[in-house]
């Protein structure tokens, strides 16, 4: 008997000590928060920012001079989005995806719901010639149009040392978008040590956000925006009554079987301000959106009060829009 039990005993010992060790280790790192504050300042080239800002609001980037970037990414009243399920492009065209906010987009690791653009400059190349969005036939046309402007040619010469170019335009816009951040949110203040910056409910909401595991997907500086995730990891999204199962997401970009219905985990920094929700804007309220998350991403049941606490936590994530960005 002794002979047989010895290895079992040893195994148990090792198991317990490993368990204990890992427990200690995770405790040691428990002090580190999965969400970190947005920096107050960004390092940018101011001349490019000013040029990019002008371009961002310039309707001449669209086929019929009716639409600018700001039409779908309303900085003034829409927190960088337009509040519609699908944005209106030129000639009343509509796409199939909800327009996300451009605020804090620079903190995302990829751009677009499916991450098909690697960075902001790469992103900015796309809407202009997208027939459903700004509808320009080509960048040559855009450049020809901008060349008629009194200032652009000089400004480009001064900044990029050459004529107006596609690269210059998208670089300037990207530089401007870097300034579109929302620092100093109550939650960031809390993270930086101001205990009273958020309410008790919000603190509780944050704890729930962590313990329920929202944080394993919505995390980092941008509370999201640093990974891809399948919609419906714990419950088949086909079981959802809405239309969330229709878009194949990243699969359309990579054609990898495993990328079906995979999307970039969106930032929740301005989530409470930018309904409707999800890639197709099919969900009108934050409550419904959180419910869907709980059901399909966490695969569990959450009491009503906890959901409310989580939402009030999400409210504490809304930061300040820097002065002079619009």
């Amino acid at each position: 008997m002794k002979k047989a039990s010895e290895p079992v005993y040893l195994m148990k010992l090792i198991k317990t000590s490993c368990f204990f060790g890992l427990f200690l280790l995770s405790q040691a790192y428990a002090g580190q928060e999965p969400i970190t504050p947005i920096p107050n300042q960004v390092d940018v080239d101011n001349r490019k920012v000013q040029l990019g800002k002008k371009l961002f609001f310039d309707t001449r980037l669209s086929f019929d001079n009716s639409i600018s970037c700001a039409s779908c990414h309303d900085l003034e009243t829409g927190f960088g989005a337009d509040g519609k399920q699908f944005s209106d492009g030129v000639k009343g065209h509509q796409g199939t995806r909800n327009s996300p906010t451009v605020f804090n987009a620079s903190l995302n690791f990829k751009q677009f719901w499916d991450g098909r653009a690697n960075d902001l400059a790469g992103q900015a190349r796309m809407p202009v010639t997208n027939p459903l969005e700004m509808g320009m036939a080509s960048w040559t046309d855009v450049i020809a149009k901008l060349n008629k402007d009194a200032q652009y040619p000089q400004e480009f010469k001064a900044i990029f040392g050459g004529p107006i170019s596609e690269d210059g335009i998208v670089a300037a816009i990207a530089e401007y978008e870097k300034t579109l951040i929302t620092p100093n949110s109550p939650f960031d203040q809390f993270l930086l040590g101001n205990e009273s910056a958020i309410s008790k409910q919000q603190k509780q909401g944050y704890e729930l956000f962590k313990t329920y595991g929202c944080v394993s997907c919505h995390q980092g500086k941008n509370v999201g925006g640093n990974m891809f995730q399948k919609i419906g990891v714990l419950k088949d999204i086909n079981l959802q009554t809405g239309s969330l199962n229709e878009d194949l997401g990243r699969y359309l970009v990579t054609k990898n079987e495993w990328d079906k219905r995979v999307f970039k985990v969106p930032s929740l920094r301005l989530a409470v301000k930018t309904p409707p929700y999800f890639h197709d804007g099919s969900v009108k309220t934050i409550e419904k959106a959180v419910d869907i998350m709980i059901e399909f991403q966490l695969g569990r049941a959450v009491p009503e009060s906890d959901r409310a606490a989580i939402i009030s936590f999400l409210e504490s994530l809304v930061g300040e829009i820097p002065e002079g960005v619009y």
Binding site: L25, S26, Y29, Q32, P34, I35, V215, K221
Partner: peptide
Amino acid sequence: RYNLDPNYD
């Protein structure tokens, strides 16, 4: 993998 990093940033 071993939860030593609180996020993927």
